[in-house]
Design a protein around this nucleic acid. Structure first.
Lengths: 110, 110
DNA sequence: ATTTGTAGTTACTAAATAGTAACCAGTATA
DNA sequence: TATACTGGTTACTATTTAGTAACTACAAAT
């Protein structure tokens, strides 16, 4: 997120929302989970995301220390991503969101 | 969120992110907490938010069933907001985010 | 008669986020 | 020689989100 009012807030909770409070990051973190995964796989697995947005979000996640990026000097290139300790520690929160949603979401059948 | 790919996703987790995955909603939910609060108070307490954005977000939170809005027919008008059961059930998740942030955030002193 | 107070709304503009399509490197394979 | 492969980048456009300032209603107090 570029909003400096969030990222430089004196409130730690606001800063936390500044790093994970958007729509793509929780999705990406959830898809990675506990595995090591390549860029192309993420691109293929996550519905609707574009390579541009995926690149941007991965970069921010890495900067914020949730993600580790390993680039192998091969051809064609291979780049692997996995969650850091910080990123892994966020997974239970995503699980809690799933449970919460399951319990309270009102499903409207179209 | 207006992104229909999130709100109409077949994946419940993606839909959940569609309702709370933005920067303002976690902040608003956290500020309301367990109390009953008026529009003007929210506007005063939440840093940087504008009345326009606050109105929009409150409306969406109400539509998604996280929030209850009580309008009293007085003059000047009085409107009170409080979290629904669903909204209250989301508070522990926000607490978990605070704990997570406290443990893992790397604080850079400017 | 004017100001105060509340909870907004409206029209317009600005900024942030996302989408599209083309392009790159360098080796391997057809 | 041309194409594929991977993990991007770039330039440009479109959409979404947010900010600004003015305005509304109605009653009470000044």
């Amino acid at each position: 997120m570029k909003d400096e009012r969030f990222c430089n807030s004196h409130c730690p909770f606001t800063r936390a929302i500044g790093t994970i409070g958007n729509k793509w990051k929780p999705i990406i973190i959830n898809v990675i989970g506990t595995r090591t995964i390549r860029f192309g796989q993420l691109d293929a697995i996550i519905p609707h995301i574009t390579r541009k947005v995926l690149t941007e979000q991965l970069k921010e996640l890495e900067e914020d220390g949730l993600l580790e990026r390993m680039a192998y000097k091969e051809l064609p290139p291979r780049v692997e991503y996995k969650l850091s300790e910080k990123g892994l520690a966020f997974l239970p929160i995503l699980e809690a969101i799933k449970v919460w949603n399951l319990k309270y979401e009102v499903v409207t059948m179209p």
